[in-house]
Amino acid sequence: MIRAVRRLLRQPSAARFALLVLLIGVCALLLLLTPRPDPAQLPHLADRLGDLAPVAAVLGGALLLVALVPRTFITLAAGAIFGPLEGAAYALGAALVAAAVGFTVGRLLGREFVAERVRGRLARLDGWFARQSVFGVVTVRLLPIAGFGLVSYGYGTTGARVLPFLVGSVIASAPTAFGYAAVGASVSSPGHINWYAAAPASLGLIASVVLISRWWRAERRDAVRPADQRW
Rank of each mutant, 00 (worst) to 15 (best):
A197P: 08
S188A: 15
A174P: 10
Y180D: 03
A197T: 13
A197G: 10
A201M: 14
G179V: 13
S202G: 14
H192Q: 11
N194W: 00
I193K: 02
N194I: 08
V187G: 02
S202H: 01
S202K: 00
V187K: 07
A199P: 10
A182H: 07
I193R: 05
P175I: 05
W195E: 01
A185K: 07
A197K: 04
A201K: 01
P200K: 01
N194G: 09
G191V: 11
Y180E: 07
A182I: 13
T176M: 09
P190S: 03
A198S: 07
H192T: 15
P190G: 05
P175F: 01
N194S: 09
P190V: 14
A197C: 05
S188L: 08
G184A: 08
W195F: 10
N194M: 04
V183P: 04
A181L: 07
S189N: 12
W195P: 05
S186M: 15
L203V: 14
A174Q: 06
A201D: 01
A197H: 03
P175C: 06
G184I: 12
W195Q: 00
W195N: 02
A177I: 13
P200H: 06
A182K: 07
V183C: 03
S188P: 12
P190I: 11
S188Y: 12
Y180V: 12
P190M: 05
H192P: 06
S189I: 12
W195V: 07
F178P: 07
A197D: 04
S202V: 14
S189E: 10
A201S: 15
G184V: 12
L203N: 00
Y180I: 10
P200R: 04
G184T: 13
P200A: 00
G191S: 08
P200Q: 04
V183D: 00
A177P: 11
A174T: 15
A185S: 15
Y180A: 08
